[in-house]
């Protein structure tokens, strides 16, 4: 009986071990090894830290690295600021059918591929696009306006792409907040701001943290939006990884970039958890 249940345990464990091993651990070990070697001549490699040295000394690489980090944090913050009132409305103010409809409306854009959605933005914002034409027609602009290829456009795209992943955890945590707790907050003399700060936000903290982690990681690892909506100055770190692997065939440097990105996201997520005084276990479980 005991040995049988043990066999069952290992059988159930196998897919997980295979998944982790084949798709995550082995490729990453390989990437780490690639990033730690230097090509001397054709087919001859030597172990060295040259790739990391290059990555950390070349101003373009470093600037892009820092820019990607800062912009992702900013995108996460903007997403949180926009998603919180939306989620609060859906979870607490809307009732019954309206609540379901609003939630569906948040979901519907995600039925369409990200590529198509990004093209949607391009149709709206390009020089010959709808908004440009509208501005000319109303006389607010006397020539075509190019709204694409700026950091602001890219930010709009990033926020739009991440919205749902912030709204869902927020709605879930806010729904579990008892209305009478909010009323008690007012009844005992609180105003809107203090109730928000002392009651609603502390209650929603698990949702805020998990939403922020997901949105931050999505933004940091986003490739499509920065490439299509960003300008020539808004280089994203993932674009650089792509360039090294595919365009330059410089797998060594690409792998080093990849590891720097992994390190960056780990450090920022850890920092976010430290800042809010939560553990990963609390947030995910």
């Amino acid at each position: 009986m005991r040995s049988q249940s043990r066999i069952a345990f290992y059988l159930l464990l196998t897919p997980l071990v295979l998944w982790l091993g084949l798709l995550i651990i082995i490729p990453h070990i390989d990437m780490l090894l690639i990033s730690l070697r230097e090509r001397i001549s054709f087919g001859v490699y030597e172990t060295s830290l040259t790739q990391y040295e290059k990555a950390l000394t070349e101003p373009l690489y470093l600037r892009t690295f820092a820019r990607t980090a800062v912009m992702s944090v900013l995108a996460t913050a903007i997403t949180l600021l926009i998603a919180f009132p939306v989620a609060y409305y859906i979870a607490k103010m809307a009732k019954g059918r309206l609540q379901q409809v609003l939630f569906m409306l948040c979901l519907i854009p995600f039925y369409v591929s990200e590529l198509v959605r990004t093209f949607g933005w391009m149709i709206l914002l390009r020089e010959t696009g709808i908004i440009s034409n509208l501005l000319q027609w109303t006389g607010l602009a006397d020539q075509p306006v190019e709204l694409l290829y700026t950091d602001a456009t890219m930010m709009v795209g990033l926020v739009y792409t991440s919205m749902l992943f912030m709204v869902v955890p927020l709605v879930t945590t806010l729904e579990s907040l008892d209305d009478s707790v909010v009323e008690a907050g007012y009844d005992l003399g609180g105003n809107g701001l203090s109730v928000l700060r002392e009651i609603i936000i502390p209650h929603a903290m698990p949702g805020i943290v998990s939403g922020c982690i997901v949105v931050f990681m999505l933004s940091l690892g986003n490739y499509l939006t920065p490439t299509m909506l960003g300008g020539k100055d808004s280089l994203w770190f993932t674009e650089m990884i792509y360039n090294q692997f595919i365009v330059r065939s410089n797998w060594e440097l690409g792998a080093a970039f990849g590891f720097m990105l992994l390190l960056l996201s780990s450090v920022i997520v850890w920092g976010m958890l430290r800042l809010t005084g939560r553990t990963l276990k609390e947030t995910m479980g």
């Binding site: 008892d178 009478s180 009323e183 008690a184 907050g185 009844d187 209650h203």
Partner: peptide, 14 residues
Amino acid sequence: VNMVFQHLALFPMM
């Protein structure tokens, strides 16, 4: 006036 709510509504985060 202050109110004691049906399910008390103590603030669980405090």
